[in-house]
Write a protein that binds this DNA or RNA. Structure first.
Lengths: 153, 153
DNA sequence: CTGGGTGCAAAGTGTTTGCACGTTG
DNA sequence: CAACGTGCAAACACTTTGCACCCAG
């Protein structure tokens, strides 16, 4: 997992082009627009919601949902995006240009709050070591009710 | 989330019957057999694998996959089983008769190692408090390569 | 004997794939 | 101009649902 934290858009783009070149893949308008849209609308996207946004923003490109899936999978394989899998109804993807973090998810409004915590990361390493397990990555999600939704009730 | 830790099978059964009664639902052979099978073969089941095991163990009941899904959902709603959602290919369910724990998942052999860690649980509470977030539950999964599979390579 | 439960098959989801055509390098 | 990429629709995998019959209470 290479370090792509805190990169601005141009650097992400360069990195993406590099990955494409190294794999004999081509840089297309569709691929560009997926990356750019995820960057500009910093958020957690379902393939569907990203698809909708792309149709709206670039109607002339006529992007297909299959391309969105293909591009997201490509970006994930290249460690440029990360996916979260919730209970049901598919994954959400986020651009990996931020330091590693985990997520708190509100059960009421589905809002996602990001947080980082080194203490937990460190403890995870210790636990893995104890079991002789070689850690590559993890996912942690805290579920509950966010401040806003608590007040509404 | 009521406390159903460390219950033996009979207590689980009583609890299940109570839940059914309170909701005007019926105690059927199929529902009984799902609970019993999960208890006897303490494991993480996909609906499919549980279904296979049921067909093998109780061929005369002729259980349908739909009933397995319905029963697992019912048990989950009643907080008697918990589900894990992995990257893709659906959820796995486990009976909630053990203290809370999290999972390490081997990317090579798909083996699941359970562990508990109070330090992390406590830290999660602290983080949630910091954001005014009311925590109800969480899931944490560590991905990597287990000891066995490391040796094989 | 009545309302919920079941198996079956069909319908829903979300995601991937085969194909003919289009575009990149 | 030779791949590779794309949109489309069909295929897939997993899960839910409508229905006629069944069974628990």
């Amino acid at each position: 997992m290479a370090d792509i934290e805190n990169m601005e858009y141009d650097s992400l783009l360069v990195r993406f082009k590099d990955i494409l070149k190294h794999n004999n893949l081509k840089f297309t308008k569709q691929r560009e627009v997926v990356l750019k849209t995820m960057y500009n609308n910093d958020d957690h996207f379902s393939p569907e919601s990203l698809y909708m946004l792309l149709k709206e923003s670039y109607p002339e490109l006529n992007v297909g949902i299959a391309t969105v899936y293909r591009t997201l999978n490509l970006l994930e394989d290249s460690d440029m995006v990360t996916s979260l899998s919730f209970g049901s109804s598919g994954k959400k993807f986020e651009l990996g240009n931020k330091p590693h973090h985990d997520h708190m998810i509100c059960k009421v409004c589905d809002d996602i709050i990001e947080f980082e915590d080194n203490a937990i990361e460190k403890r995870q390493e210790e636990i893995a070591n104890k079991y002789g397990f070689k850690l590559t990555n993890h996912m942690m999600q805290l579920y509950g009710i966010c401040q806003k939704c608590q007040k509404k009730q």
